Simulated assay, not measured.
Amino acid sequence: MLSGRTPTQDLSIDKLLDRFANGSARQRRATAVALEKAADALAAVAAEALKPYEPSGDDWAAGWILQVLRRHQPEALARIPRVESDGWFETPSARGIDYSPMQRALLDEDFEEADRLTSCVLRELAGDQAEKRGYVYFSEVPPMEGLDLATLDRLWIAYSQGRFGFTVQARLLKALDGRYDRLWPRIGWKLDGTWTRYPGAFQWSMEAPEGHMPLINQLRGVRLMDALLSHPGLQPRI
């Protein structure tokens, strides 16, 4: 008689973590679910669980481990260096920008706040005039620091199971032959004359379509998004 149990449910926490770090993409997805169910055991080895991953990288497995602990065993995060202060992932900035608030928002899965902070960073990178007017012109994107755009992208990827971020949007656009009119429905954005954020229509959750976040203001056409996704600082990551 079948028990209804999946193979991962019978693995020890050490074996689950090994499969999570070294398994195929399909194995990782299945193991992510099993790790959440084993949150108590995960908390007992919290710091050890992150050893296979680099804080300078964007491996979503590390972000997932941190999010599972935040949801179920938040006290375990105090045993992991940097998580409660600056954030576990390194966030280099050529402009001295503090990314810890954004990393905390993503860790908490407060994607709406993370999106707001992303917009703030883009305005800061664009310069004083963009900050004063409250939005960025496409012509202000090329001089932006590539290091900071890469940091933004890494954080989104690391805390979204690899589903959100500028380079995710760029890869989807490339697969759709550069057609923005095909990209919008694919990532769940809506059209009504101009591209904009619709009250209640945007999904601030992990269940949103791949590439759904961060939201890029399209009120003045697609040139701002085009400039961001083609920025040289992001190209090595696409």
Rank of each mutant, 00 (worst) to 15 (best):
L2C: 00
T8G: 02
D10W: 06
S12W: 01
I13H: 05
D18I: 00
R19G: 15
F20K: 02
A21E: 04
S24A: 11
S24H: 00
A32V: 11
A32L: 12
E36T: 05
K37A: 15
K37Q: 14
A38R: 15
A39H: 15
A39L: 03
D40E: 15
D40T: 12
V45E: 05
V45N: 06
A47M: 07
A47N: 12
E48Y: 09
P55C: 02
P55L: 03
P55K: 13
A61I: 02
A62K: 06
W64T: 14
L66S: 08
V68I: 14
Q73N: 12
E75L: 12
A76C: 07
A76V: 08
L77H: 06
R79Y: 06
R79H: 13
P81S: 11
R82D: 12
F89E: 07
E90W: 02
E90C: 04
T91R: 13
P92D: 05
G96R: 04
D98L: 02
Y99F: 15
M102P: 00
Q103K: 11
Q103Y: 02
L106D: 00
E109R: 15
F111Q: 03
F111L: 15
L117W: 02
L117R: 15
S119H: 14
R123C: 14
E124W: 04
E124V: 08
D128H: 13
A130I: 08
A130T: 04
E131R: 15
E131Y: 05
K132N: 04
K132Y: 10
K132I: 09
Y137F: 13
F138H: 14
P142V: 10
E145I: 00
L147F: 00
D148K: 06
T151M: 04
L152I: 10
L152E: 04
R154Y: 05
L155H: 02
W156F: 08
R163V: 01
T167Y: 03
A175Y: 02
R179Y: 01
R179G: 03
L183D: 01
L183R: 00
P185Q: 09
W189T: 01
D192W: 10
G193R: 05
W195K: 11
R197C: 04
G200C: 08
A201R: 05
W204V: 02
M206A: 13
P209R: 11
P209M: 01
P209G: 03
G211I: 04
H212K: 08
M213H: 06
P214T: 05
L215P: 01
N217M: 03
R220D: 11
D226C: 01
H231E: 03
G233C: 07
L234M: 08
